[in-house]
């Protein structure tokens, strides 16, 4: 077991890399005041607004923050629910 653990542990990224990725996110939130909680709120409200008009799959909706060189973006990924093509209404 100990022997296997050694291999398993090696696959985890070193802690310096973890720190860098965590910082990248934290600094983005700090700089723009867009927190993970705010992203959740936006997601919930987008789901409720859009699903009033179009059937969407709320489980797969994603709202993320994307940092660019010139501008930052909010990116919403909103998959539509399959409408049952061919079925008669």
């Amino acid at each position: 077991m100990k022997f296997l653990d050694r291999f398993r542990r090696r696959r985890e990224p070193p802690s310096g890399e973890v720190a860098r990725e965590r910082l990248r996110l934290v600094l983005t939130y700090d700089r723009t005041s867009i927190s993970p909680a705010l992203l959740e709120t936006l997601k919930d409200e987008i789901i409720s607004v859009i699903s009033r008009h179009v059937p969407i799959d709320p489980e797969r909706v994603e709202v993320t923050f994307k940092e660019g060189a010139r501008e930052h973006q909010l990116v919403a990924h909103i998959p539509l629910r399959p409408t049952g093509r061919g079925r008669r209404r």
Partner: peptide, 17 residues
């Protein structure tokens, strides 16, 4: 030594951030 092991942010990481 910790940077070499990957267990500390590198100076490049800090500068980039």
């Amino acid at each position: 030594e910790m940077v070499r092991r990957g267990d500390m942010l590198t100076s490049e990481d800090v500068l980039e951030l």
